[in-house]
Computed example of a mutant assay.
Amino acid sequence: MSVFADLVAHLADLLQPLFHASATAVAIVLFTALVRLLVHPLSRAAARGQRARIALQPQIAELRRKHAKNPEKLQKAMLELHAKEKVSPLSGCLPSLCQLPAFFLLYHLFSNTTIGGESNALLTHKLFAAPLGDRWHDALGDGGVLGPQGLVYVGLFVIVACVAAFNFRRTKRMMAAGTAGMPTVTDEQLPGMAASMGAVSKFMPFMSFFTLVSVAVVPLAAALYVVTSTTWSAVERAALYPLPSAGTAPGTSAAPATP
Rank of each mutant, 00 (worst) to 15 (best):
S245L: 02
A234V: 10
A25H: 01
I54E: 07
G147W: 08
A254K: 05
S208Q: 04
L100R: 11
Q149E: 14
D187N: 13
A23R: 00
H40W: 12
F203R: 10
Y241G: 08
G116N: 15
S208I: 03
L42G: 09
A222E: 02
V87H: 05
L109S: 02
P17H: 02
P259R: 05
R51D: 02
A33Q: 09
S2N: 15
G150H: 06
A45I: 04
T171K: 00
M182D: 11
F168G: 02
S119L: 12
A180G: 15
V185A: 04
P17M: 00
K172C: 13
H67T: 11
L109D: 00
K202R: 13
A221V: 14
K69R: 13
S201W: 00
V26C: 06
A55E: 14
A12G: 01
G178P: 09
Q16P: 12
T32E: 05
I159L: 13
L105Y: 15
L156G: 00
A12L: 06
A180L: 07
A249G: 03
V163W: 01
G133M: 04
F168L: 00
T24M: 04
P183W: 03
M197C: 10
S111N: 10
T184S: 14
V200C: 11
L97G: 13
L146H: 07
N167K: 08
S196I: 15
G49S: 03
P219D: 01
A46R: 02
E72Q: 11
A216N: 07
R237K: 14
P256M: 02
G141L: 12
G117P: 10
L240E: 08
G133R: 08
T184V: 12
N112Q: 15
V35W: 02
L190M: 03
L140S: 14
A194G: 15
S208V: 06
T184G: 09
D142W: 03
M193A: 04
R53Y: 10
F110E: 00
G141D: 13
F168K: 02
V215P: 00
L240G: 10
F128D: 14
V3E: 14
R64P: 00
A238M: 06
G247I: 14
E62F: 10
L15V: 10
F209Q: 05
R135C: 15
L240D: 08
K86W: 12
S111Y: 00
P58Y: 07
L146K: 06
M204N: 11
G117T: 09
F166Q: 03
F110M: 09
A129M: 12
L105P: 11
